[in-house]
Amino acid sequence: MKKITIIITLLFAIIGGDSLYGQVSMNAVTIIGNKTGFSSNSAKEIKQVFRGKYANWSTREQVIIVLPASKSSSAEIVASVIYGNTVSGVQKYWLSLVFQGRSNPPVFLDSDEEIINYVKRTSGSIGVISSGNQKVPGNLIISINN
């Protein structure tokens, strides 16, 4: 039963995930990355990255996902935008992945600044912060084509 539930969830995510959880637009968040080697910047692909779909970039560099900590102010918006879920749901999602070893665990940081700084320092890392942050260097921003 559980297995069926997961499959259905994934189907929704693949096929109509945006419509299901996407009450909030991707514009609500800013995606930043450092040498991610992204060739495509579609929202779907970005979400797949953040959902641990890929372990390495095309450059063979390890994908390092950087997310706002569950207690940070951006956590909820990011959970909603990227994962179409609650903060708690995001945690359980990552718990399942990490527990089974299906993905590298993401890095959770307490503020956007910390996420920005981390991404700036870490090659292959990709993070998400709330939109409108003025301190984001332009070279880190990954624009999304809705």
């Binding site: 997310l67 900590a69 569950s70 945690q91 359980k92 990552w94 718990l95 990490v98 527990f99 070893g101 590298n104 665990p105 993401p106 890095v107 959770f108």
Partner: peptide, 12 residues
């Protein structure tokens, strides 16, 4: 730890 402090590294 992973759920309380987002320490999924430790869980891994």
């Amino acid at each position: 730890l992973s759920l309380r402090a987002d320490d999924f590294q430790g869980l891994k």
